[in-house]
Each structure stands twice: as C-alpha cells, then as structure tokens.
Amino acid sequence: MGLTLMARLGRALRSTGYVEFVANQCLLFNHYLQDSEDGLVYHGYNDADKHHSCCKWGRANGWSITASVEVLLALQEFKDIMPSKWSGVLKIFQTHASGMLRYQSTDGRWRQVVNESSTYLETSVTAMTLSALSRAVTQGWLDKEKYGPKLDLAWEGLQGVLQADGTVDGVCTGTGIQTCVEDYEKRPTPYLNSRNGGVGSVLHAAVHYYQFKNM
C-alpha cells in the first residue's frame, strides 16, 4: 500500500531518490513474499523463524500487483540509469500477472484466497487486478492478445457486483494475517465496513479498463 503513494510522489517530483527507494522496496517485498512456483504473493512472512503465512490472500495480491505497476510507472523515466531495477520489477510484475491469470475464475473474478477454489469470489482483488493488468497492457508490458480477453471477462464478472444504487458487493472487510484458509473464508463482506476500498478499487478498474479498450 505504501509503495503506491511513494511511487506517485516520485513521479510527481521526478525524484531519483524516491524512485530508487520504492524500486528497492518492491524488489525486497517480492523477494520475501512472492512464490517462485506460481507467481502469487503470500499475505505475510515472519523473518524471525523464516516462514510464510498460510495463504495468498486476494487483496494482498491486489495491492502487490498494483504497487508493481505504480513502481514501473515511476521507473520509466529513470530506467536508463536504473536498468537492473527496471528489469527486476518488470520481471516480478510479469510473473505475478501470469500467476493471477492462471487462477482467474470462469466468471472472470478472483477469489478471497487466490489459489483456493473453496473460497468466495471477492471484489477488491478482482478490481485491483483488472486495473493493474489493464494499465500494463496499455503500457505494452503485457501482451494484448493474451490478456485482452481475460480483461473483458474480468469486467463482465465485476459488473455483477454493482448494484443500481451504487452499492458494491463482495468486498472483504479489512483483514490481518490469518492462520488458515478457513479463517479467510469466514471474513465477512459487509458494505458499510468495506465500501471505501471497494468503491475506490472498482472506480480505478473502470477507468483503466476503459483506457485499455480505447488504446
């Protein structure tokens, strides 16, 4: 979450220091959290005893893939002087994007625990992933032919949670690191407790998907 703000500050201020900082942080976060086998990120890592948390929570993956896009946007202006950071973050992002594509449901959405089909379809991870992948295709970081149909499917799935009165359904309430899949599955989706992040992520997804469709 924090990388998104710092990356935007780096872009706005054209600050080499800020951009280098967020690039380093992105590389470090993903070094500890990203699973090299499926490309997804774990919700947490305990360095004291060197173990990952149980699960790959949806919104944790949503924030991570969003942060990678923001860092890449910030790095673009500086990639000639930070080539290894650019290529490193781009590889992290593309690996994550490929992993998310693998676990997209048949109706286009992603799940509360991304790689666990027993968990419910969740709105914020769907919106954040759609937003990030749409931006990446528009920027040319992902192949349009491969990802375009999956973005269309994600938008179709996302529309199903939007009510006529503006209510956005299916957004998991704020969630700390849990001990098992079942604990994530129990996390509720009350609109009054989750509307800010839910509505915001859907608005971002709508804008970035529109830009993709009009590229």
Results as ranks from 00 to 15, higher is better:
134 S>E: 04
88 G>D: 06
102 R>W: 00
79 K>V: 01
126 T>L: 04
80 D>A: 15
146 K>I: 11
163 Q>N: 15
86 W>Y: 10
125 V>Q: 13
161 V>Q: 08
129 T>P: 03
166 G>L: 06
92 I>A: 06
94 Q>M: 07
126 T>D: 08
118 S>P: 01
139 Q>L: 13
121 L>S: 13
64 S>L: 00
158 L>Q: 10
125 V>C: 12
120 Y>M: 09
109 R>Q: 12
85 K>Y: 06
110 W>T: 05
165 D>H: 11
76 Q>A: 12
113 V>I: 15
112 Q>Y: 05
134 S>L: 08
116 E>T: 01
94 Q>E: 03
88 G>M: 07
161 V>R: 14
94 Q>L: 04
166 G>H: 04
125 V>A: 11
151 L>M: 14
66 T>H: 15
112 Q>S: 04
142 L>R: 01
98 S>L: 04
129 T>K: 06
85 K>E: 11
115 N>I: 00
102 R>A: 05
131 S>G: 09
122 E>C: 04
67 A>L: 08
95 T>M: 03
118 S>K: 13
91 K>N: 13
109 R>C: 12
163 Q>A: 15
66 T>K: 03
121 L>K: 15
69 V>S: 06
153 L>V: 02
115 N>F: 00
64 S>K: 04
115 N>D: 14
166 G>P: 10
159 Q>S: 14
126 T>P: 09
107 D>P: 04
165 D>I: 12
96 H>M: 00
120 Y>G: 10
164 A>W: 09
149 P>C: 05
67 A>V: 10
75 L>N: 05
97 A>C: 06
90 L>K: 06
97 A>G: 07
114 V>P: 00
119 T>G: 06
108 G>H: 09
76 Q>V: 10
67 A>T: 04
165 D>M: 13
121 L>F: 11
78 F>S: 10
63 W>I: 04
63 W>L: 08
106 T>E: 14
142 L>C: 08
